[in-house]
Design a protein around this nucleic acid. Structure first.
Lengths: 200, 200, 200, 200
DNA sequence: TATGAATGAGGCTTCATTCAT
DNA sequence: TATGAATGAAGCCTCATTCAT
């Protein structure tokens, strides 16, 4: 194994271990000592790669979230859905289903949200990680235009949709409140469809 | 000053000081030492009244939030608004305006949200503090019924409204993102009106 | 109830409660707060009767131990045992049997021992509480003389007997080490008999 | 100085300082802060080596006690004492003389006794530290057998001897009660000789 | 006598970060 | 790069004792 692989190896071991511990015990209850112990790495090594626990956490969320959206859009492309509303719902539904499968990821993201309102618009931020890919933002803006949907400010509408989805789904998935996610979905999707429906 | 006033005095000084420090520096960065120093009270006295920092925080949020909603509904009653949608918007607008005036309260509440998704539906919870008053929940359910609004599940709709308002307003008020609150309001209110509009 | 009875009542409630808590949780883990709470007495009242926790403990041990020996000697008198060795063994056996029945008392006394070597000769000290009664010391000295037992220093022999009994019985009763008390007794009593046997 | 020496140095400085303070002021009155201050070591360093004050104390007692017995037996071997009773008395006398020279060690050990009756048979326990050396237990059992001494249970006899010696000597050495140690010794040794005398 | 709120010293422990190797 | 011993600030909490009522 070359020296670079060893390097990557340590960094990745730290990332993987941290993800595991963060989702298991929460960030606040995970010490750097915990992380390095579980990663079989010396304490000092941690600081070679990350400024502190929170930088590591941010990187982790960015990576995981980006993958989530990237996968959602890849899947969308494979499904040849033509109707705009259906596309948006498809993406949202894909993401929700993933979060249902990996609630620990949801918890991690939700814990991040807790840090401050700054990061509240998580989803929008994350898709910017890779500037080359078309993200949900581009998909939405283009779709509104192409479908001649009458929205005074599409960006604001997207913002409201994302905030609505994320804040309600935390509650629904993690606490079944006010309804389990599968029962909640119809209400949510109907509301979203109303927010972006074409004027007939 | 009687003994009870003295007692209340210390407890209130702790509450007031803590509110000041929590909103200024955040809860995590406020130590119990900070609080007692600023309140001119001995450290042990803190533990006479509160189990820990977080119990104090919870009391603070409950008190402040309850007052906010109570004031909103009192004001509503004084304004003789007959239309249901207008009533709902009035209450929401009142709360938003208060939070704009006291963004520190918004920050405190938002920090609470951080604790866990459990408390996410803050607003609904808080109005339950006083079981005698009619809260926004009762107002909404009764209004839907009286106005013959066709909602499959009014409770779920209220949940979505509250989550939408709270999550978007944090961002708008504190970060002017995606728009300053006054520019954002029309979009938000239109969306809400659509969610509860009567079928004509 | 007269004022003196109320006084006694509080003091006794403190003593009783403290004994209960000391034996249950140990002295170190029993706070004055614990004691006054359980005795339904105000904290300040404690200091009206006792200098501190340890004074209370000393009083408690003295009272309980004195009763123990007093009972043993009373019982001895009722049994008309004429042989000196038998008398000594009777008393020791009586005390051991009581401690077996109330190991919590044994624990309390043993915890006291822990405080320092000063109190090591517990048993001798305690019988001095009431100067009027004949104690085991008097019984022993008189018995040695009357039975013409050849001991260079009877006081030292009594001291050794008491230390031997107390230190081995703690271990035997509380930990069955090196043997359970009933199996250990024969060895112990034989050793003691040898220490005070008459020269034939 | 190599890294291991430095490490050992800190640990040993903590041990030495703690021994000094424990014996001077008692364990309860010695805070960890005291120890680290006197050892010129940071507070956190303490927790690198010891779980708490009591773990340090246990290590200290084990070390010191083991050395004491080890020295006693080494000295015995150099003195070519053939008679069994004389051997036992020699060892006991050696230990007593050492404790007379270093009463602080006696105090420390006596404080340990306080921890609970579990450790009551201190001496027997300690010699087990090094499984390779022959300890006083082995010496005793072997001696009883070789000398054809009629004891129903030699282990119980040894237990009684050790408890008798330790509990009486604390009192005699530290408080001259009931007699100064040198005056007490003859009585003690005679009693012990009687406990293990060969049947003629 | 009796109360119990208030005190604040005292002690414990964790952990992010540094730095010599 | 990598290590991990050492640091010491930072925070938490308990509790004996006092004192005004």
């Amino acid at each position: 194994m070359g020296i670079n692989e060893v390097k990557e190896d340590k960094k990745n071991r730290l990332l993987d271990t941290a993800f595991k511990l963060f989702t298991e015990k929460g960030i606040k209850n995970t010490s750097i000592q915990d992380i390095v112990d579980n990663a079989n790495v010396a304490k000092g090594t941690f600081y070679l790669y990350f400024k502190d626990k929170y930088e590591l956490r941010d990187i982790l969320i960015a990576k995981k979230s980006h993958k989530l959206f990237s996968d959602a859009l890849t899947s969308l492309r494979k499904n040849y859905i033509s109707n705009f509303s259906d596309q948006i719902i498809f993406v949202i539904n894909y993401v929700i289903d993933e979060l249902v499968k990996f609630p620990l990821l949801l918890k991690l993201i939700s814990k991040d949200l807790s840090l401050g309102v700054q990061n509240s618009t998580v989803w929008k931020i994350y898709e910017k990680i890779d500037e080359n890919e078309e993200g949900i933002y581009d998909l939405f803006i283009k779709g509104v235009k192409d479908n001649n949907i009458q929205l005074k400010n599409p960006e604001v509408t997207l913002f409201m949709i994302i905030e609505l989805v994320s804040s309600t789904c935390f509650s629904s998935i993690l606490n079944n409140n006010p309804l389990p996610i599968n029962e909640f979905k119809p209400y949510l999707y109907e509301t979203i469809r109303n927010m972006i429906k074409t004027e007939d």
